[in-house]
Amino acid sequence: MNLLEILSYGFIQRALLAGTLIALLCSVLGVFLVLRRLSLIGDGLAHVTFGSTAIALALKMYSAMSLLVSMPIVLLASIGILKLTEKGRLSGDAAIGLVSALGISAGIILASVGGGYNVDLLSYLFGNILSIRSEEVVIAALLCVGVLLLVTFYYHELFAISFSDELAKVSGVRTSYINAILVLLTALSVVLAMKLVGIMLISSLLIVPAAAALQLARGFKVCIILAALQGCSSVVIGIIISIMSNLPASATIVMVNLLFFTVSCVIRRIIHPKNSN
């Protein structure tokens, strides 16, 4: 099968379009999360997504309909992480671990009560981008536009809290409000991304493009643009390689992402040998 033939299939076009949109969201938000040391929030929320998907499947709500169950639950979980950090005397990683444990254990119990792990639930665990439907592409596009608009409007506030919460507060930035926006946008992106790479690999979409961009970027805006470019390219290249080589798409996308990260580290070593350690 040649490349043109591959691109002519509707399901591949949908996968490429939705995948690129989701990767764009995740990589842009990932820069703020990595710099705020909230990298693992993607993992935590993904585990909650697993629990919420188990609820949706138990209610016989599939594909786009399952988002109606997952989104509110994951949004609530993200607020829970914030509140535990702010008021529960817990560090961010402990709060993420707590909510993550709740999500995954609820998912396991519900899956067990509902007759074990069926194909639908497993597809959410490992991702199935090639089965994405037109309505899911539309949802991804709408959310992508919404999230990118919010990031554009709040760019300087997000930049400020990533640099220093203290300084942002003294500059009049409402840090709790901006933190809530960041975490809620992440929750929406995680729910969308579960179909792309699956719950097990979602955090790689958030972390790896940002980590690679941090190796090369000279400037905050440049870092976001580099991360977005890498995230989108990894999805396109990963999907094409997976189809041509008959490999699982989710893991191939993540491996391409990791390859980009390695190349970025090598380039940094060549360009800035003194700052590479």
Binding site: L35, H156, E157, F159, A160, S162, F163, L167, A168, S171, G172, V173, A213, L214, A217, R218, G219, F220, K221, V222, C223
Partner: peptide, 15 residues
């Protein structure tokens, strides 16, 4: 942190 000196100083104008 990937910010340049110019970007960092610009944060002081947010208020």
């Amino acid at each position: 942190f990937p910010a340049t000196v110019h970007e960092t100083v610009g944060l002081g104008l947010l208020s």
